[in-house]
């Protein structure tokens, strides 16, 4: 009887609207998470993750954590995810983005572990005795932010200060890690030119990218006199990302199309000759 009553209070804690919201947005969040780990390009993963996080922010709001919901959107989705995107742009696209597995058995083991772990967690939650449902009405009575602040600056003040120190340390750490000290004088243009002469490479400026009748684009390699494309003509970033557009086939394709068109015309002439 008491269990029934507890279940009643539990189920009574949420409105039908929230249930609807949970089922719809929860599905989207899971899809977003799956996309995060399955998208080939890091940019797409980051965007999917941002979506999931926004949904989580909505859930926070629904659960009465108004401050966290806003922080989730502003700090997490706004700042941290943008930092991710920034780094993705900086690092560029690499072969690591391939989803093809290189370690034998890794994927199966990972799936097995994930599945097992997930089932265990779900079973664990299912077995947990969660009969109490109080709700935040009383705790949030004086305002969620005020309530949090009261806790943060009394009970958790030391942890709060220490996390502040942690953030400072992390900032400094990031600076130290990415900063490269210039230990020698910057070389002048003249010195650079002399070095190039000494090393005997690329005395003249780099060649311009290729020009094609329909394109005048930076991602097309220029052709050398013997017809082979020269990667030198494409800018380094595109080269490293492997985003050089190969147009060598296009000429053949065009030729084929031309021949076909000619053949159609000839067919007609053949038919006519028949």
């Amino acid at each position: 009887m008491s269990q029934l009553a507890a279940a009643a209070t539990l189920s009574a804690g949420t409105s039908t609207g929230e249930a609807f919201q949970f089922w719809v947005l929860g599905t989207v969040a899971v899809i977003g998470a799956l996309c995060t780990i399955l998208m080939k390009k890091a940019v797409h993963s980051a965007l999917c993750l941002a979506g999931t996080m926004i949904i989580l922010a909505i859930f926070y709001l629904a659960n009465g954590a108004y401050f966290l919901g806003v922080v989730q959107i502003i700090v997490y989705t706004g700042a941290i995810m943008m930092l991710f995107l920034f780094v993705v742009m900086l690092v560029g696209v690499t072969a690591a983005d391939s989803l093809k597995e290189t370690i034998k058995g890794q994927r199966w083991l990972a799936l097995l572990c994930g599945l097992g772990f997930g089932i265990l967690l779900l079973v664990g939650i299912g077995n947990a005795s969660l009969h109490q449902f109080i709700g935040l009405g009383k705790a949030n009575a004086g305002g969620n932010v005020e309530g949090l602040a009261a806790l943060l600056f009394t009970k958790y003040v030391f942890a709060f200060e220490i996390t502040g120190a942690l953030l400072i340390t992390a900032t400094l750490g990031a600076m130290v890690l990415t900063h490269r000290e210039r230990v020698e004088r910057a070389r002048t243009q003249r010195e650079l030119a002399e070095q190039r002469v000494r090393e005997g490479k690329h005395l003249p400026p780099l060649p311009a990218p290729g020009v094609y009748a329909r394109h005048n684009a930076v991602d097309i390699a220029g052709l050398l006199p013997d017809g082979t494309p020269s990667e030198l003509t494409v800018m380094q970033t595109l080269r490293e990302r492997g985003q050089i557009r190969d147009v060598s086939d296009e000429a053949l394709g065009d030729l084929k199309a031309l021949e076909q068109r000619a053949a159609e015309r000839l067919e007609r002439t053949e038919e006519a000759s028949k």
Partner: peptide
Amino acid sequence: VSMFGGAA
């Protein structure tokens, strides 16, 4: 993977 398996 082994770590995750261990946690499981």
